[in-house]
């Protein structure tokens, strides 16, 4: 039941899947969904939001989500998500070069939000001139903000309001951070299956590692760091909803048979405070050996890449 609880941010914004056009969100539908899941506190929070003619005020929702994502970036900085992504991405790009996979290599971050990881990689990644960094999100204000930030700091990356699997120039590597737990059951299979079918060479999806300490740790952190109630609510819930390494690996192996799949930092720890994130890693089977070699000592943390 808890795992099926939706995050507020999943409910208060909606897009038409084909055109990505923003759809009006009736407030009462959101409240009913939250109440159905026994989430009265979340319902009370959304109930206070402006809702002219019964529809949540889109500008207000955007402002709340923007504040929440600014605070989320602060956590990403503290937890060094950019560095974390780079540690697995650099060996992957080296593998592609070594195996003569034709470039340029397009690293596409799915559900990039404000594009923190992509912008961090553009600033500090040292990924090489043959690598393009692209962030995709359905949320137009996020993308326009990310684009502006990148331009302001002279970062070589781009952002698009787009379905990451339907770009005119397809991805070589799909990445994400803190996104994959939003996909449950069939939609997780669809999300991974699209990557398998896309012709991409690899994917790296980071998310919170579900451990017995993750929910309380997440609560402490979000309570200490977040100001925006939505950020606090969704942040804590996302740690509860995080997929287990076995669920992720099984879904990826089922839907992407042409990929060797492993979970980085997925191993159980007695006191799980050192490794708070895991990464679902998939590489085309023909790249497996070369990637393991390029990973060096990190390969030991990958578990089985099969």
């Amino acid at each position: 039941m808890t795992l099926d609880r939706p995050e507020i941010s999943d409910l208060v914004i909606a897009f038409e899947p084909a055109t990505l056009e923003r759809l009006p969100v009736p407030r009462d539908e959101v409240l009913a969904t939250l109440e159905r899941h026994g989430m009265s506190a979340a319902a009370r929070l959304v109930a206070r939001w402006p809702h002219p003619e019964g529809v949540l005020d889109a500008r207000f929702v955007d402002a709340v989500l923007l504040r929440a994502h600014l605070e989320l970036q602060r956590l990403s900085e503290e937890f060094r998500q950019g560095e974390r992504m780079r540690s697995l991405l650099v060996p992957l790009l080296d593998t592609l070069r070594r195996e003569r996979v034709p470039g340029p290599y397009r690293v596409v971050d799915v559900g990039c939000g404000l594009g923190y990881v992509i912008r961090w990689l553009a600033a500090h990644g040292g990924l090489g001139d043959d690598t393009r960094l692209i962030g995709c999100d359905y949320n137009a204000p996020f993308i326009s903000f990310a684009t502006r930030l990148a331009a302001e700091e002279g970062l070589r990356c781009e952002f698009a309001v787009a379905n990451a699997f339907q770009l005119s120039e397809p991805a070589t590597i799909f990445t994400s951070t803190g996104v994959i737990h939003h996909f449950r059951r069939e939609s997780l299979d669809r999300f991974l299956g699209e990557q398998g079918a896309s012709g991409a060479s690899a994917f790296l999806h980071f998310d919170t590692k579900p451990t017995y300490l993750a929910p309380i740790g997440s609560w402490i952190f979000h309570r200490a760091r977040m100001r925006e109630p939505l950020a606090l609510h969704d942040g804590v819930l996302s740690a509860v909803r995080a997929h287990s390494p076995d669920t992720l690996a099984a879904a990826a192996r089922r839907t992407c048979p042409e990929f060797a799949v492993g979970v980085h930092d997925g191993a159980r720890e007695l006191v799980p405070v050192l490794k708070v994130m895991l990464a679902l890693v998939g590489v085309r089977r023909e790249l497996r050996g070369a990637y393991l070699e390029r990973l060096g000592p990190l390969a030991g943390r990958l578990g089985e890449l099969a």
Binding site: E78, E83, F221, L274
Partner: peptide
Amino acid sequence: RELRILATVSILGPFT
């Protein structure tokens, strides 16, 4: 990085 996270997770976050 892992030890930095330890500092954050066990002290800097909770003690704030």
